[in-house]
Amino acid sequence: MDRFWGTFSRWLIVPVALLVLAIALYFLMRLFRLRKDQATGIALISPWLFGFLGFTAFPIFYSLYLSFTDYSLFGKENWVGLSNFIKLFTKDIEFWPSVRITLLYAILTLPIGVFGSLLVALLINREIKGIKIFRTIFYLTAILPDSAVAIIWRQLFNGESGLINFFLSLFGVNKIDWFGNPQFVLPAFVIISVWGIFGTNTIIFLAALKDVPRNLYEAAEIDGATTFNKFRHITIPQISSVILVQVVMSLIGSLQMFTVAQFLRPTTQAGIFMNQLVYTRGFTQLHMGEASAIAWILFVIILVLTLAVFKSSPAWVHYETEVKNAR
């Protein structure tokens, strides 16, 4: 039990320190002639503020700086200008394959994950017998830990005795080395992600579907609208803001693939994601400057794609004018 005491005592000290800082901030704000309630508000949110400044704002810029250095955890870093980036773009044999699979994986899983789960949500959004059992089963994939999911699929895709190769062999397909073959590693990852993604996205879409006012459908039925028309002109516009959130979240999530890939351990270079490259370069080879450069490239990719989605959203997201009351 000895191994816990150090952390535990420091864990007790941190809130005390934060409280002292909050109180100090309160009086500082009072000196700046803020009202009592204003100063109290700032003091209350100060734990987040300190965490944000120290562990988010500062690190973002620090990692940008590091990407222009040869920092390696030991000793002083040297400014190397753009050479990390130039090396990655021109000489590095691992970099482009990782960009390729990271992007392709995100682009392929996005529509399947979002629209596939929307269809499933539509399916289970009806009150038929036994629907609760189906919902429970569907949600199961949302709650399993990534690591366990990865282990299951590693066994299923396993070249020698895996169930998937067995099913394929029934159709005369030879055994496939899914995670060793550059051609098959991407489809394998996509299949796993689709399996895991259904639960979470489906729950969210189901909740959104339940929020669509019933009277809209009734009005449309009186006008003789078909099921497809109702879906196209009522359901989609009504839940479009949820679709937007899902698209953005899925995109950001899939571009950051790490845990599942790390547990699946592809043996082909074509199956290594950018985030894994950040980890191996930074933490096993201690090339932290180079790792920061990769991390920033991925950050820019995520930023550009997210902004593109948001920019395109006025064209397809229908914003409600009425203000919904918070619960």
Binding site: L34, W48, V248
Partner: peptide, 30 residues
């Protein structure tokens, strides 16, 4: 509570939701 800059700070907080964890990984480790 209301205080100056509250809305900007709150938007900042929400935007950290979209921040990929690995950008801050190495400096945090340091």
């Amino acid at each position: 509570y209301d205080f100056p800059g509250k809305n900007i700070i709150f938007i900042l907080l929400l935007s950290t939701m979209m921040l990929p964890a690995h950008v801050t990984l190495i400096p945090t480790y340091i």
